[in-house]
């Protein structure tokens, strides 16, 4: 658009110039000669930018074609896609590893759990929105042995406090599993059925 605007402006200027020049021409023999030359001058001034404009596009197309053949371009694009897949897999693996450590640490915080090992499955959807979305968590925990480390303490009567809390610390296997499942699901925004917790018995 800008090129056309400039072209029109230049044509107007050149026509004005030609008209002024014609007024200056002598009135006799040489006038015809000069009229032809002034006409050529106007013609060349109008045609030059037009030709430059017309010649510009094929040159650009030629340059693009020369950059590489179609096969080469497709190979480069394929390489780029492969590289993107590798990078994506690497980043997912690193993210999963960190996440598994976090989940295992979270499970170990539950009373009665001595060791935990987590395995995270991510969504297989390749879209960007689904990147890093947890599909399933498999957690294997080891129950702590109930060996007395310290001398049994005397009975202490506590008048206040939650009874449930006490029960948590002294609860059975299913309670530990439920507790771990609930903690992991609530912290990572998962449904409880997405978190599978199993015991690995000690030797």
């Amino acid at each position: 658009m800008e090129t056309i605007r400039l072209l029109v402006r230049n044509i107007v200027f050149v026509i004005l110039l030609g008209a002024f020049l014609e007024m200056l021409l002598p009135l006799r023999e040489t006038r015809r000669f000069l009229e032809v030359i002034v006409g050529l001058f106007v013609l060349i001034t109008i045609l030059n930018p037009l030709v430059a404009l017309l010649r510009q596009e094929p040159l650009l197309g030629f340059e693009i074609q020369e950059t590489g053949s179609k096969g080469q371009l497709e190979a480069i694009l394929d390489q780029g896609k492969d590289l993107q897949k590798v990078q994506s897999a690497q980043s997912r693996a690193a993210y999963g590893e960190q996440l598994e450590k976090q989940i295992a640490a979270l499970a170990r915080m539950v009373s009665g759990v001595s060791q935990a090992k987590a395995a995270v499955q991510f969504s297989t959807d390749p879209s960007l929105e689904a990147a890093g979305v947890i599909e399933r968590v498999d957690l294997v925990i080891k129950k702590a042995e109930q060996e007395p480390i310290v001398e049994p303490v005397e009975k202490v009567e506590v008048s206040t406090g939650s009874v449930e809390q006490v029960e948590q610390f002294t609860g059975g296997d299913q309670e530990i599993l439920d507790q771990v499942q609930e903690n992991v699901a609530s912290l990572f925004g998962l449904r409880p059925e997405q978190v599978s917790v199993t015991f690995e018995k000690l030797r």
Partner: peptide, 22 residues
């Protein structure tokens, strides 16, 4: 005018010379 029209000044000089000769 020639500068505004971005025309090569060589052409104008030639035209003026031709005019003078005429």
């Amino acid at each position: 005018l020639t500068r505004s029209a971005r025309v090569d000044e060589l052409y104008l000089t030639t035209l003026l010379k031709i005019l003078g000769i005429a």
